[in-house]
Amino acid sequence: MPKLSLEPLFCHFVIFLFHCLKTHFISERTVTTMELYCLEADTIVRARPDPNLLCDDRVLQSLLTIEERFLPQCSYFKCVQKDIQPFMRRMVATWMLEVCEEQKCEEEVFPLAMNYLDRFLAVVPTRKCNLQLLGAVCMFLASKLKETRPLTAEKLCIYTDNSIRPHELLEWELVVLGKLKWNLAAVTPNDFIEHIVKKLPLPEDKLDLIRKHVQTFIALCATDFNFAMYPPSMIATGSVGAAICGLQLNSTDHSLWGDSLMELLAKITNTEVDVLKACQEQIERVLVSSLQEGRRLQHKQQQQDQGGPHSKTLDGQDQSSTPTDVRDVNL
């Protein structure tokens, strides 16, 4: 009898188990806390950052080892898709980001959903009229994996202006799960943020701001197909670099920063300095063009508003193809 290789299955099971344990851990803690505080029903239950995971270098090394497994198999606009174009991916990504922001989803939900979307599109030729359904399914799955109170099918259908129905969402959920081989616990750039930030000599009072900028850069990268094939660690490292430069934290102490920032970052995630530099520059370019697009649309919006109330019906189409947060970032 041939021997069945259980290794990949086993890995996924371990990851799955980890998530179960995490959930149980959270729940157990809630039970403990409830006796003391009686939490309100609306409170979002979150586990605290676990130093056992974040301060252990083996976790970072494991993330770096397995991250490639969750990348899309090919650049699908060239080899798989016929009906859909890169600009359509951007449209659906922008819509997904808006839904996630409006629903105040956890930060990693959007990048994870985009990972599912890219992996599905890399294997299944999809028609453009089903792309929004796919986007909704991916958010549905990512939200279930990452949130204590996930998005509901009904809510997501309303966000498509009722162009899809809940039972269709549930049916396609099964199809997408099959194509992803049920490997949902993908590594995202967000998984690296704490590991990277912890290793940099950054001012304590700026950490929250840096995290927020990094998350915005990561979301921005997820909307742009050029980053879809990059390893998550590289996107995370480039985003941290871009955030630090953008906030001009590197100009205060030249001996610590400058080129040494790049070298330090590259060392943390085993990336080459040149590649990392290119990645960061690419992120900054995407930011600039998205800021310009944002201004252009804002300007257009103002003109429309001045033009009278009749023009209002048209603005939904591709309004704000940039996340609102990004517009607040000063370079």
């Binding site: 449209m91 009229c129 792309l131 603005d315 704000s320």
Partner: peptide, 8 residues
């Protein structure tokens, strides 16, 4: 505004 049908 996020509530919209993208591709018909």
């Amino acid at each position: 505004t996020a509530c919209r049908n993208l591709f018909g």
